Simulated scan of single mutants.
Amino acid sequence: MTEIKDFMPFSSTYRIISFMMVVGFVYPNPKLSKIRIVAVFALLLSIAPVSLLIFIDIYKSFIKRDFVNIIRHSTVVGPFLGSFLKQIIMHMKQTTGMQIIDEINRDYSSYNTMPARYRRIVDASIKNNLAYSEKCWAITVVSCVMTFPVMAIALNIYNFTFKSEPTKYMIHDLQKPYGRPEDRFDSPYFEIMFVYMFYCAILYVINFTGYDGFFGLTINHACLKMELYCKAFEDALEANSLAEMQVKIVGVIKEQNRLFKYVELIQETFNIWLGIILIATMIQICNCMYHITEGYELDLRYIIFIIGTIVHIYLPCRYSAKLQHMSLETATLIYCANWERVSIISIRRMVLFMIARAQIPLEITAFNKLIFDMDLFVSILQTSYSMYTLLRS
């Protein structure tokens, strides 16, 4: 059997997510608060010119009643500007965010001293996180965002290689605030804007990879904590003496209480963000569908973008539903752990309270009101389609 290596801290285990959180200024280190404020302000200044140009073009399009162009711009610039809210939110929630990472680091350190059967469960959970919550999510974000610059580069290379009068393509087609429409393709304006928008695309990837991936990792770790203390409860009932059994069960109860506090930290850290993406995603899906069906031509970039948008709201709903299901499943696992073989009344009472508490599902909510689960995901899609049909009419 392959030897399981020691479990490392959060930043060493999930290098991609940690790196994206650091360079995106959402890593919740209270010691770097002042640096984070200055850096976020500098980033906002760096994207102000392109944002201003887009808003000017939106205004001109509104005057001309060109709603397709308005939606085309808002589909891209809305999530881009909204992503900077994550930096502000994490700055506000840096204390609870850091407590989440500290709890994960504390757990990984304690897992190194556990028996091999526990370590295999932890190792499988970490591998799952690395494969799906980290790598697959990063690939999804890169695929959705970098499709725009990659297609623009490919079309420019093809046109300049095989056409005598090549057509230039921008990453995101944007009119100059003055002059003729074709002036945007003149040098060096075109080259400067191309590099500038490529820089914005990189910021896009960074802002959506780190923070959103962090949420998935925290939920999966909560599920891991529940799985481990249910396993520990089974082992506690097989103890050789009453004193040892009581000590082990008390340890399980303490871990159960730590799990509840940990989930409260997740709720406190992410509930505002979940509410924002709930509203923004419905608008985004509606806008993408409208642009694809009512735009000037079928655009592969926006088809990929709408798929990424749906995945972006699906994953929080899926993770939250997983947490809810696992929290209820712990009651069944504890009940099926052969506790009836123990005749000690005090231990039976402890089991009773553990089961009763586990029967209350753990839920992640947006704005502390709307429960995130798969029913909400279906409702979001239905509402988005209703908004789309209203917009078309």
Rank of each mutant, 00 (worst) to 15 (best):
Q175I: 02
Q175C: 01
K176E: 04
Y178G: 00
G179R: 12
P181L: 03
P181H: 06
D183F: 09
D183C: 03
D183E: 12
F185D: 05
F185C: 06
S187M: 12
M193F: 13
F194I: 00
V195G: 08
V195S: 09
Y196C: 03
Y196H: 09
M197R: 09
F198Q: 05
Y199E: 12
Y199W: 13
A201Y: 08
Y204R: 06
Y204L: 03
V205N: 12
T209M: 07
T209I: 14
G210Q: 03
G213Y: 08
F215S: 02
H221A: 11
H221E: 08
A222L: 11
C223K: 14
C223R: 14
K225M: 15
K231D: 02
A232D: 01
A232W: 01
F233A: 14
F233N: 05
E234P: 00
E234L: 09
E234N: 08
D235F: 07
A239K: 10
A239W: 02
A243F: 04
E244H: 05
E244I: 13
E244P: 06
E244V: 14
M245Y: 02
Q246L: 11
V247A: 14
K248W: 01
K248P: 00
I249R: 03
I249Y: 01
I249L: 09
I249F: 02
G251L: 07
G251A: 15
I253S: 05
I253E: 05
K254A: 13
E255P: 00
E255K: 15
E255V: 07
Q256L: 09
Q256T: 04
N257Y: 09
N257A: 15
R258M: 12
R258F: 11
L259K: 01
L259T: 15
Y262F: 15
Y262Q: 04
E264D: 15
E264S: 13
L265H: 05
T269Q: 07
I272W: 10
W273V: 01
L274K: 00
G275M: 08
G275P: 08
G275Q: 07
I279N: 00
I279L: 11
A280E: 10
T281A: 10
I283L: 15
Q284F: 10
I285E: 05
I285V: 15
